[in-house]
Design a protein around this nucleic acid. Structure first.
Length: 644
RNA sequence: GCCGUUGUAGCUCAGUGGUAGAGCACUUCCUUGGUAAGGAAGAGGUCGUGAGUUCAAUUCUCAUCAACGGCUCCA
């Protein structure tokens, strides 16, 4: 007999070899029907796998992350079975569960899949799912496994096998399909009730662009049709707040074929948002002791040789223009220019920390396929600053930068983000990263300390650092689920020396400063793209391109509307009059759709009482007020940047 | 850059081997209406661009550009 400890602490006795599914059945049949997998002593197992020792057991269902991923991984196997039945010569690479669903990478030997094939595969999968085939686990010796796939002529699985240890290899079979797989899987295919194959894409084998391109099929499955319907509805809703759609609808930005891909044109409405953000940044940075600078958009090649960017970054820079035998590059980053400002005058330790800030315009020649609305562009305006400080000052400075992020995020109500401590990869020293092993360790510890001591939650990810040092990145997700770095806070122990930057310390000796690169508001492009989605186009009043729309009930009140407009303008409020001969209902509808925060309805009553009827976007009629009251309240909301 | 898909009016989309349509937006006129769409008329497109096949191409073929979904890469 074995003792099974349940999550509530209860201990139950079962015969040795009992499976989690059988245990579930002993508790309730209803529960057993929902069990997808089991957590046995911290490891996720097949629910059908016999348990031979005392164990802590947690049954996993659709409501558990691991339950879902097991469900989706099993769905990938089901899809593979369907694919193999339609294309017997297919060879599979890997088929993991992902955030929302699963994919499987496969080599179809030149056969191209189309939408029609996906529909056929769905039908086949549904057919196979109904058979309720079990997922059978089988331990296999490495030799047998190699023999099996060698006979099949499957070089991909043989490649996988190379890195697996004998004794740890398992096959899973459901129906006619057998795969090399560590598992776990759901009890049988019958759990999969609703299937949607969502896309076909190319994916490099092992993620290396030098390798062959495999066909990747994405899909998502659910335990009921209702769940699938809800998911599809959610996707539709997400599309509505896509910044590319909203940006067009609200007149924020535009692209033009003749200007070039990835080069956004900021329309008047977008420019207002840019200027409000810059106003915020200038205020904040002024109070935090930053000094503003302005630098050119281009520089000689030698600047980027000195900085060390050229070998690491040249592919991402626009090709140089050559003038009188000298190459000039469009700047892809502001750092070298700022370093030259530091070097422009001799510095004493009394000058430090020196914080140089600029909304610098940079150009990066991103690969065409990487461009994505405003989130990934080729011309970007960075909320950049470089802080030059001593080692002793570093902790406080780095911490202050982190605090500035959090202050900003509070203003914007940004709460769905992950702080990522981005570290180097020791195996890439000298290639992707400056070859200074000790300095890497030292600065990574410094940065981690800031996060730990300020109790900031974070994740550590290797091989994401800048070439000159570790950094903290703030990761966010676009509405369609793509991940981006919104803001970044970086340590640089390399460029100070490369530029021979020095200050005289209090012992009258030259010393090289540490440098912090920081961009809490990222770039205008990405930040505004993010804000569009974050607010679903409903900007807080201080950011709204148009803050107030005056809606006269009829043409008779146009004169009164104009006097109100003048008062608002004089109070620095962005306002317009809707002077069309339309009915009030139509004017309200159009203004609501344009996401203008305030509407002032003006008619006979208001004119006689010298008042205005106030309506708030999304909230309806707020009743009437005097104009001075309205202006005072609004100015207060704008001044304090209240996110309503 | 790579794999795949798409490209018709400002926007959303029909449509056809015989040189094009709808709704919204726009203009004009009528209407002067109290909290999410009043009515009528009009204007607007060398069907992404270039070449080829054809008596004839927006439609078929190829190339190219751009966008989209991914991969790779990044603020």
């Amino acid at each position: 007999m074995i003792n099974i400890t349940l999550p509530d602490g209860a201990i139950r006795e079962y015969p040795e070899g009992t499976s989690a599914l059988e245990i579930a059945k002993s508790i309730s049949e209803g529960l057993a029907r929902k069990v997808l997998a089991a957590n046995i002593n911290g490891q996720v197992w097949d629910a059908t796998r016999p348990i031979h020792e005392d164990a802590a057991l947690k049954l996993l269902t659709w409501d558990d992350t691991e339950g879902k991923s097991t469900f989706w991984h099993s769905s990938a196997h089901l899809m593979a079975e369907a694919v193999e039945s339609m294309f017997p010569n297919v060879k599979f690479w890997v088929g993991p569960a992902i955030d929302k669903g699963f994919y499987y990478d496969m080599d179809l030997g030149g056969k191209q899949l189309n939408e029609e094939d996906l529909r056929k595969l769905e039908t086949k999968m549904n057919e196979l799912a109904k058979k309720q085939n079990g997922y059978q686990r089988k331990a296999v010796s490495k030799n047998d496994a190699i023999k099996y796939f060698a006979e099949k002529g499957d070089e991909y699985k043989l490649d996988l096998l190379q890195n697996l240890k004998d004794g740890e290899i398992t096959f899973y079979t459901q129906g006619a399909f057998t795969d090399l797989c560590r598992g776990p899987h759901i009890p049988n295919t019958g759990f999969i009730k609703a299937i949607r194959l969502t896309g076909i894409a190319g994916a490099y084998w092992k993620g290396d662009e030098k390798n062959k391109m495999l066909t990747r099929v994405y899909g998502v499955t659910f335990p009921s049709q209702k769940d699938l319907d809800a998911y599809l509805l959610m996707l539709e809703e997400a599309k509505k707040r896509d910044h590319r759609k909203l940006g067009k609808e609200l007149g924020i930005f535009s692209f033009d074929d003749e200007v070039g891909p990835g080069l956004p044109l900021w329309l008047p409405n977008g420019t207002i948002i840019i200027e409000e953000l810059e106003k915020l940044a200038k205020e904040t940075e002024q109070r935090a002791g930053y000094k503003r600078v302005v630098t050119p958009h281009i520089a000689k090649e030698s600047l980027y040789i000195t900085s060390g960017h050229l070998p690491y970054y040249e592919e991402s820079m626009y090709p140089p223009m050559e003038l009188e035998g000298v190459k000039y590059y469009l700047k892809a980053m502001n750092c070298p220019h700022h370093h030259k400002i530091f070097a422009a005058e001799p510095k004493s330790y009394k000058d430090l920390p020196l914080r140089l800030a600029e909304y610098g315009t940079c150009y990066r020649y991103e690969q065409s396929g990487e461009l994505f609305g405003l989130m990934r562009v080729r011309c970007l305006h960075m909320n950049d600053a470089h802080i030059y400080c001593t080692k002793e000052q570093f902790y406080e400075e780095f911490k202050a930068v982190n605090e500035m992020y959090l202050k900003y995020f509070k203003i914007f109500g940004i709460d769905k983000y992950v702080m990522r401590l981005s570290l180097h990869d020791p195996s890439k020293l000298g290639k992707k990263y400056i070859d200074e092993s000790e300095l890497w360790k030292e600065t990574e510890t410094l940065v981690r300390d800031v996060l730990v001591k300020t109790k900031t939650p974070f994740v550590e990810v290797p091989d994401e650092a800048a070439f000159y040092g570790p950094k903290i990145d703030v990761q966010i997700w676009s509405t369609i689920g793509r991940e981006f770095t919104l803001a970044t806070n970086q340590v640089d122990f390399a460029q100070g020396r490369r530029f021979k930057l020095e200050f005289t310390n209090n012992e009258n000796n030259p010393e090289t400063p540490l440098i912090i690169h920081r961009a809490p508001l990222g770039t205008h492009e990405r930040f505004i793209g993010f804000l569009l989605e974050h607010y679903a186009g409903k900007f807080p009043v201080w950011l709204a391109p148009l803050q107030v729309k005056i809606l006269p009930i009829s043409d008779k009140f146009m004169g009164y509307a104009q006097t109100i407009l003048e008062s608002l303008k004089n109070a620095d409020i962005r306002a317009e009059v809707d002077d069309r001969s339309e009915k009030i209902g139509k004017k309200i509808r159009d203004t609501e759709i344009a996401r203008v925060p305030f509407m002032l309805v003006i008619g006979e009553k208001e004119m006689n009482e010298e008042k205005i009827a106030v309506r708030r976007q999304g909230k309806g009629d707020l009743g009437s007020q005097t104009l001075p009251d309205f202006i005072n309240n609004l100015r207060n909301e704008i001044k304090n940047r209240i996110a309503e």
